[in-house]
Every structure is written in structure tokens, then in C-alpha cells.
Design a protein around this nucleic acid. Structure first.
Lengths: 269, 269
DNA sequence: CATAACAGTGAAGGGTGTTCACGCGAGTTG
DNA sequence: CAACTCGCGTGAACACCCTTCACTGTTATG
């Protein structure tokens, strides 16, 4: 159907000439936008269009609105930071999840400190009242459906966390010792509950809970440092970050290896 | 000098008529701006001027720029949130610093969740490259000079923290057990070091360090919740916040009183 | 080849920050 | 009291922003 002449290079993929062009334009949009962002400028339709040699209305062929532009950039930032973390993770062997998770966390912090504006845009964006909740934490290990947005980030850490637990079986709080409200959350979570239960048995809730706590600590220290609410020297030295990583690691049964892990977390003394 | 007629009401203060008028206008500016903010609108020079029945250029008699307007509002937000926390603190007697600090922390969280836009503006603002560092944590207990900006916030918690320690003398890490980089930070801090040493003796550094860690945890969980990077139900139930408060409290020697403090932290089960 | 889809333009309407020249009037001064 | 300064406010204007619309040229398709 609709096949005639210019379909030669369809061997590689179902990409018509126009589609390739369009995709390239999208890439350039994101590229220009992130360059602006890193340069401290605002990401505006006009600025991006201008840097591309286009008039502003032209961008509306690719993007519905300025907010959609932000979303587009946000998506790419997510995959970018995940890629950065994955690279740091992969310098350590697969049978060493402790090193891998510490390396990834450290890379996350380094990226955040190096790209504060992008970090703020992605991780400290307003609650968007009425919008679908950002957190995809309920579908924990690997999202069944949409791999978009924040979930690719959550999944990254979730996978690492699971591997760590499967190797070390660090103690997790029992269902009874948990705040009843917490238990209720995952009891009612429907599909998520089943997936979790299958993976971790009775410890499921405890594992999920520790994951949330660990994530809270990591997010907290990184946000604190990025926004400069702590002594700059403490940031530069990385002492505070290492201390938090040590806390997390202790909770997750990595305390005995602290000297090794501390080096991975970037000890510079 | 320059004294003649209109100096009658100078008894109450050195406020000339014009000065009072001017001050009232400032108050109205802040008032209108915060009303806009709470209503979900942007704080713009034009909008504020419009709501006051003025033309935009008129506002430049009071404010240097839109950024300065933001700063002005930010200042008032700081004193506002501190006042809110102080009110929560003061329902508990002075000889119960544990209850007071938990109540204040809980009020801080509640305020943040209720005013996310203001929170983002004040506590998750970009690092402002080149600007003076926001954190006044070095001058810990009570700032000697400028009581402006974030320091009034830090001082509030600092004072509470000091009282807690003076009552309980919870164990603090020794100078030797601390990351050398941390020790170096406060060793070189000059004036701050002396003030701290006088107050806490040899434990000074350890106390400061625990304060920073506690602040990091509180800031982290509140930011996490405000920006929705965690399950909404976990936020609504307050379970996560209580868990973090428990962590902090355990570090600060309040674990034995957890049941009492948990209620203060707003248990709703 | 004719036609429909696409990409891009210019104009226009609405929002914002900011500067400038100007005027009005209250406060100050001779 | 007259004159004057100075604070306060206005209107016009420039620059930047988002967005929509009608319109055109190019490109791919049938």
C-alpha cells in the first residue's frame, strides 16, 4: 500500500525521507535547547527557533507548546543522566552490586552538581497541580507499560537495588514492624503488590520500604547540595555526601565494606 | 538640623510621613505578591502593579527589578515560615526541646506541602552562580551580624538543636572519627570555630556535624515530598515523614520517647 | 501530472520586564 | 508666602516571550 518509488533505503528501517528529516529536526531542537540550558539561558520557543535559523511559529510543527518543549527536553535529560549513571555502574562487575549502586549514586550526584539548572528542571519541578503523579514507584522493578519520564530513572535504581538485596539479603523490616499506613499503601496498590510479592515473598513490603527510604536519602542529599543549602566546602570535599552514602550503605548491609565503597564514592583526601 | 514643622509624631519613632507611606506601600507590594503566589499566579511586576492600581513603572520606585521583587517576597516568606514554626514550637514547654523541635519540623513540612510554589521559590532556587553562598551554617548558633535571608531560618533550628543537646547530651562523633575533610572545614572557619568551641567545648565539631546531618535529612524528606518524587499515598499518610523523623530522633537521643513524639509528628492512623 | 501533505513565513494579539521623559503635588527651604 | 526640590506616578516605547492564523513554496504521493 502506498508503495512506489522512493522507498529504496527502507531496508534499514521503515523510515521515509521525510521521517528522517523530521527526526533530525527533533534532535536539533533538543540539542539546541540543552545547549541553551547549560549556558544558563532560558529554554524558550523563540530562542530555540532563532538558534536553528527558524521563526518561532515553525517550531509549532514539532512541539505543541512551550511546556511540551520542556517535557521533550526533560525526557532526554532523563535518558542522559541514566546513561551517565549506567556508565559509572558498568565499570564494576555484575556480581558486585554494592559497588555498582554506589558508583551510580555518585555519578548521579556529580551530574547534578555539574548541571544544576537541568537538575532543577527535572527533579525540582513544581507539583503541577492536577497532573498525573510523577512518582512511578509503585510499579517497582520494571514498569510494564510506559518506560517514559521518571520511571526510567526509578527503574534504574530499582534494578540495582533488587540485585543488591538478592545477593546480600540484608535484613528488612517485617510487615508488622512497619507503620500501618505504609502496609496499607502497598496492600491496596493492586498490580504492584502482586509483582512485588512474587519477587520477594513476604519480605516484599520491607524491601520496597527500604528502597523508598534509600531513595529519599539520596535525593535529599543531592538536592541539598545542588541548591547550596549547606556549607560550600562541605560540598566541595564531598564529605557530607559520603556520610549519607555510608548511612544508606549501613542500612543496606554494606557497612563492612565501607573502605572500599568510600573510594568509589570519591574520596579525595 | 532640617527640623521645623512636621516632626510632631516623631515621638513614636523617626518616621516621617513620607516614610510611613513608603513603608505601607512596601507592605502592600509583598501582600499582593504573596496573594498572587498562593493563587497559583506568577509574581510579575505588571501583575502586582495592576492589583495595586498602579502602572508597572511605578513599582520601580520601590523595587530595582523583577528579581529584586522575588528577593523581597522571599525575605518575607522566610520570616513567615519561621513564625509558623515558632508557633508550633511554643505549644510545648521550654524544658521539652525534643517536643519543640519535632513540632517545629512537622510545621515546616506542613507549610511546605501547603505552599509548594513558595517553597520551591525559597528552598529550591538555582545556585545563582557567583552569588554569595546561601548557607550561613558556619555561623551556627546565632548570627552575629546580618539576620537576613536564610540565616533566620537556620538560626531557628540551630537554637532548638543546641537546647536539645544541652539537655540530653546525646553522643556526638568524636573529632577523630569524623571525616578529616569535615574537621578541616570547621578548623579553618575562623570566627565560627571560636564561637562553637566556646559553646560546646571539644564536642563542638561533632555537634555541628550532627546538626548538618539532621538538617540534610529534614530538608531531603520535605523536598522529596513537596516535589512529588514519592508515592502520593505515602505523602498523604505522613508515614515516610514520620519514619525520617524517627531516624533523626534516634540519632539525637530521642528514640525512647518515640511514641510521644510520633503523635507530635502528626500520626493519623 | 495533479493533488494533497508538509514545512516554513509574516502578521497579529496578548503577556512580560525595563527605560525614559514628563508632570503633578507634597515637603522643604529662602 | 513664594520658589524649589524631590518623591511618586504616568504614557510611550523597546525588547523579549507564547501562540494562532492565513498564506506560500516545496515535497512526496497517487
Amino acid at each position: 500500500m502506498t508503495t512506489d518509488t522512493s522507498r529504496e533505503l527502507a531496508a534499514g528501517g521503515p523510515l521515509t525521507r521525510r521521517e528522517r528529516q523530521r527526526r533530525a529536526t527533533y534532535d536539533e531542537i533538543v540539542d539546541v535547547a540543552r545547549t541553551l540550558l547549560r549556558g544558563g539561558h532560558e529554554v524558550s520557543i523563540r530562542a530555540v527557533a532563532g538558534d536553528m535559523g527558524l521563526t518561532p511559529p515553525a517550531l509549532y510543527r514539532y512541539v505543541d507548546s512551550a511546556a511540551a518543549l520542556d517535557d521533550l527536553v526533560t525526557q532526554h535529560i532523563f535518558v542522559d543522566v541514566v546513561a551517565t549513571m549506567a556508565a559509572a555502574r558498568d565499570v564494576h562487575p555484575e556480581d558486585d552490586p554494592a559497588a555498582r549502586i554506589v558508583a551510580a549514586s555518585t555519578a548521579f550526584r556529580a551530574w547534578a552538581l555539574g548541571n544544576p539548572t537541568e537538575f532543577r528542571m527535572v527533579f525540582a519541578s513544581p507539583p503541577a497541580p492536577g497532573a498525573p503523579p510523577k512518582a512511578a514507584h509503585t510499579k517497582f522493578p520494571l514498569a510494564a507499560d510506559c518506560p517514559a519520564g521518571e520511571s526510567i530513572f526509578t527503574d534504574f535504581f530499582g534494578e540495582l537495588f533488587v540485585q543488591l538485596w538478592q545477593q546480600r539479603r540484608f535484613p528488612v523490616p517485617s510487615r508488622e514492624s512497619l507503620d500501618p499506613a505504609v502496609v496499607a499503601v502497598w496492600e491496596e496498590a493492586g498490580s504492584a503488590r502482586q509483582a512485588t510479592a512474587e519477587l520477594f515473598g513476604d519480605d516484599g513490603i520491607g524491601v520496597l520500604w527500604l528502597f523508598e527510604l534509600a531513595w529519599a536519602r539520596l535525593y535529599g542529599i543531592v538536592t541539598l547540595e545542588v541548591f547550596g543549602h549547606v556549607d560550600p566546602v562541605l560540598i566541595a570535599s564531598g564529605a557530607m555526601f559520603r556520610a549519607v552514602i555510608l548511612e544508606i550503605g549501613t542500612t543496606l548491609g554494606m557497612a563492612d565494606e565501607w573502605e572500599r565503597l568510600r573510594d568509589i564514592a570519591g574520596y579525595s583526601g
